[in-house]
Structures are given as structure tokens and as C-alpha cells.
């Protein structure tokens, strides 16, 4: 095959794949920064979580104001924090997401993670799925799930503190 022919062989599916590779790199670097930040904020002991004392006082307050909370505490669906525990709690999330920049960062993280993850899944499927029709169905299903999740996640983040 001559080199001229090879150049003509670079058709849109190949370019599309190369674009996917580039996107995987870009979203990967983005995730490195923002997923690192996200994990630090939400899973490690720091000021964005409630300390055990804070959480227990929040629980007492909620239990005395709303029947829904009082029932949940009685059923054990809401538990007191252990000594030294740091807990994700609604008021802390609300406090953080009142800053528009944090909302933007969270929605951006959602899109980075979804596109990186779904692209990874489609590449894995491409390695094992040889039936063209099956693969098209899988890709369509993947897009549907991605769009639904992106919508749901964006709505969840954007609507915090708006009602």
C-alpha cells in the first residue's frame, strides 16, 4: 500500500478514535486536579465536613425541629457521630454550594468524570464486542445513560439552596 493510499485511509472513524484518545488525556488531567480536590474535601477530615461535636449538635437541633428527623433518629436511620469522625452533612454542603464557583466546579467535575468514564467503557466494549449492530446498540445505550446522568447530576447540584 502506498503512502498516498494510507493517507486516504485516515477516515472519520480513525479521526474520531484519535479525538477520543485526546479527550481521555484532557479529561484525565482535569480529573487529576479536581477529583483529587473533591476526594480531599469530601472524604478527609477537614473544615468542609462536620466534626463529631458539630454533627451531634446538628442532629439534636434537627430532631427537635422536624418530625421527619425525629422519626429517622428513633429508627436508627440517623446515627450520632463517633468520636473523631467527620461527617458530610446537608448544612455544610449548602454552605459550600452557596458560592457559584463551587457549583461550577462540581458540575464541571461531573462532566469530566462522566465523559472520561463513559469513553473508557466504550473503549473496553470495543475491545470485546465484534458484532457491529450490538456495538451500535451499546453505544446508543451508553449515550442515553450518560445524558440522563448528566441531567440528573447537574439538576441535583444546581438546585441546592434554590428552593
Amino acid at each position: 500500500m502506498s503512502s498516498q493510499n494510507e493517507n486516504q485511509e485516515v477516515r472519520s472513524p480513525v479521526r474520531f478514535k484519535a479525538f477520543g484518545w485526546l479527550m481521555q488525556r484532557i479529561t484525565g488531567v482535569g480529573l487529576l486536579l479536581f477529583l483529587g480536590l473533591h476526594f480531599w474535601l469530601q472524604h478527609m477530615p477537614n473544615g468542609f465536613l462536620a466534626t463529631a461535636e458539630e454533627y451531634n449538635s446538628i442532629l439534636r437541633e434537627l430532631g427537635s425541629t422536624g418530625q421527619e428527623f425525629a422519626d429517622a433518629i428513633a429508627e436508627g436511620a440517623l446515627k450520632e457521630a463517633l468520636p473523631g469522625e467527620h461527617v458530610i452533612t446537608y448544612s455544610k454542603v449548602l454552605e459550600r454550594l452557596q458560592t457559584p464557583l463551587w457549583k461550577m466546579i462540581d458540575v464541571m467535575l461531573l462532566f469530566l468524570a462522566l465523559s472520561h468514564g463513559m469513553l473508557g467503557v466504550s473503549r473496553s466494549l470495543g475491545d470485546y464486542m465484534h458484532n457491529e449492530r450490538l456495538r451500535k446498540i451499546a453505544v446508543a445505550a451508553g449515550w442515553t445513560v450518560s445524558v440522563l446522568l448528566a441531567w440528573q447530576g447537574t439538576m441535583a447540584v444546581m438546585s441546592v439552596g434554590m428552593n
Binding site: E68, F69, L78, V93, S159
Partner: peptide, 9 residues
């Protein structure tokens, strides 16, 4: 996140 009680649970 739509409901504070649901979120805590």
C-alpha cells in the same frame, strides 16, 4: 440533595 432529611439518611 433535593430533601435535607433524605440526604442525611
Amino acid at each position: 440533595l433535593a430533601d435535607p432529611a433524605a440526604f442525611e439518611i
